[in-house]
Design a binder for these strands. Structure first.
Lengths: 339, 339
DNA sequence: AAAATCAGCCAAAGCGCTTTGGAAGTCTCC
DNA sequence: GGAGACTTCCAAAGCGCTTTGGCTGATTTT
């Protein structure tokens, strides 16, 4: 059933029916009710392609998915998606994933903007001077960044967690426990979140006149294996750290494995704090030694991103606005006084 | 730039330009070349909404994403997505994720079909008599199932791995090593893959006249915690198994933790085989005792699904066809002769 | 009582593409 | 050399919606 048939059935013009359905004021309340009721009863729904062609709006939000043989999508992504979807479904907001060559995402961004395939875009895992952010800013499509950039001279909307504050607090706590040799096993240092975390640790150490030596910092993709390697290197060095801050729960699996292999007890000889994005399938309290964590639900972030994007599309949210979430520090058994 | 302007520029009719671009035969090779060249040079691309309205084709494939506060998206999903995207990007195939209430996906499926929002749909984690499969079959939209159903009297396209064969072989291997009390820690038994795996184990045991006792089988969502719980229960029973088959690497993290807590050595007192979907961030060879696994890359499956879907849309693949992939058995240190 | 206003509705013109049903022009063949 | 058969291109009619501009009759203002 299309608008023509439907309006003929109601003995109204297409104009009136369309306006009634879209909430325009030029139609009487009675007529509107009649139209809305009939639409529901007969299951009439405007054809999205046609509406899209006429208005340019699609009701979809876009995400460019970097792919490639050697590109791994972060497992955090599904959790984020869970939250996003959970909110979006109530608004019939669909998400379009446009796969792109990880080394040339610009082409894809240009395509989806030129084609008007989506009304807004979200970006994740930004780098300080992220090219995608700069690009979207010039292309003029609404977008929302999960994370932050640094050093751009324009404003944009973002949602980020206070990575710096979280790791500063975590480092402070370790120092209160007497730790002086603190190491950081970080994610990919090209990404802003990792930079912020390192900055937080440095700031805390600086308060006590300490510095984070280069050989006590490592950064790599957040896999179990990389966590293991970094921990081994640290623990086998001439002056091993007494505490490790770790950017991910998955990496800390590897840290624990390394410690066990080397007979380093946690928290006896090594204190460990990890960042927890809250996975349903791997919980810090279930580590052999329950893990102290900085915690922030990435799922909640996904829901909030969807909420703000929806508000943006409804013109309820205007312009650029940053939003910074505090991070919990949850103390469990993996930390103790310095040996 | 739209078709009207573009065709005026070329001094050709819109018809001819459209046909040239879409590969119709009624246009001379020379004209076609001229049109295609000019399109590339001037960056002309047909507006997808308009094309969509005219043809009904969208060039997108759909996936209904079950969401809800208590619904967790499987972390395997991103790996699948990696593969799917890696293939799809070369074809400019986009993926539309339509979030739905996990308890009422039908509404969403009906919507995306009625709205013609996507050209084809794929389904994952099917149950034996999956309602989604039955629904899509009657709705008549092309679809591809990753996994299989059981007991339907119609054919459809699917891609599945030989879960039964994999677990049969794994169980056989354990029995060759002398194991008689073998337990299975499975995923959600409502899903076909889990049923097939259990069936495989039972078949192998039956060959030796053994049966899989009810209390040696457990099934639950594949989390570390559920793996731990199941393993504890098994290992603390009056007649603990000497070998465990486990449906997921994540669960087997929990199994290893339970074994360690109880002082049960692997493979000394317990042999362990897990199924590995191949994650970049957690590898069986990096377990404290390297894990013997049944292995099948879920990423490769994603790529193949995209490939077949693309073929379907191009009318190269016709009708229903099932595809069953063999599963590797990779032997590592976690198995040994029965104690 | 005439003029001005306004609420409520409508016809028709897009949006940018594909596709139908020709119409020229070019070849072929008897 | 003219009829038929191709080849190559075109004008115009959709696809199903939104939106502009205008029209009618009722209400308010002067």
């Amino acid at each position: 059933m299309n608008l023509k048939q439907f309006s003929r059935m109601l003995e109204l013009s297409q104009t009136t029916v369309s306006r009634a359905l879209n909430g325009y004021p030029e139609v009487s309340e009675e007529t509107r009710r009649r139209v809305v009721d009939a639409a529901k009863r007969h299951g009439y729904r405007p054809n999205p392609s046609a509406r899209q062609l006429a208005t340019g709006k699609t009701g979809m939000i876009g995400y460019v998915l970097p792919t490639g043989a050697s590109v791994d999508i972060d497992p955090h992504f599904v959790e984020f998606l869970s939250g996003l979807g959970d909110y979006a479904r109530a608004h019939e907001l669909d998400l379009v994933l446009s796969p792109a060559d990880a080394d040339d995402q610009e082409t894809t961004y240009r395509r989806i903007v030129a084609n008007r395939q989506v009304d807004a875009v979200y970006i994740s895992s930004p780098q300080p001077r992220d090219r995608r952010v700069a690009l979207l800013n010039t292309l003029g499509i609404p977008f929302l960044v999960h994370g932050r950039t640094e050093g751009f001279d324009f404003d944009y909307s973002f949602l980020d967690i206070d990575n710096e504050g979280a790791f500063r607090e975590a480092a402070r706590l370790l120092m209160q426990l007497g730790h002086r040799r603190i190491a950081l096993i970080n994610g990919d240092i090209r990404e802003t979140f990792a930079i912020h975390r390192e900055r937080g640790v440095r700031a805390a150490l600086a308060e006590k006149g300490l510095v984070l030596a280069d050989d006590t910092v490592s950064s790599a993709a957040m896999t179990e294996e990389n966590g293991y390697r970094a921990a081994r290197r640290l623990l086998e060095s001439s002056a091993p750290p007494t505490a490790i801050l770790c950017s991910s729960l998955i990496m800390s699996l590897g840290v624990v494995r390394a410690a066990r292999e080397l007979g380093v007890s946690i928290p006896g000889r090594l204190s460990l704090i990890a960042h927890d994005d809250v996975f349903p399938w791997l919980k810090p309290e279930n580590f052999s030694v329950p893990l102290t964590t900085t915690r922030s639900s990435i799922r909640a972030a996904g829901a909030r991103v969807a909420e703000r994007l929806a508000a943006r599309l409804a013109n309820l949210e205007d312009g650029a606005r940053g939003e910074l979430w505090p991070v919990d520090l949850v103390v469990r058994g993996s930390i103790a006084g310095a040996p």
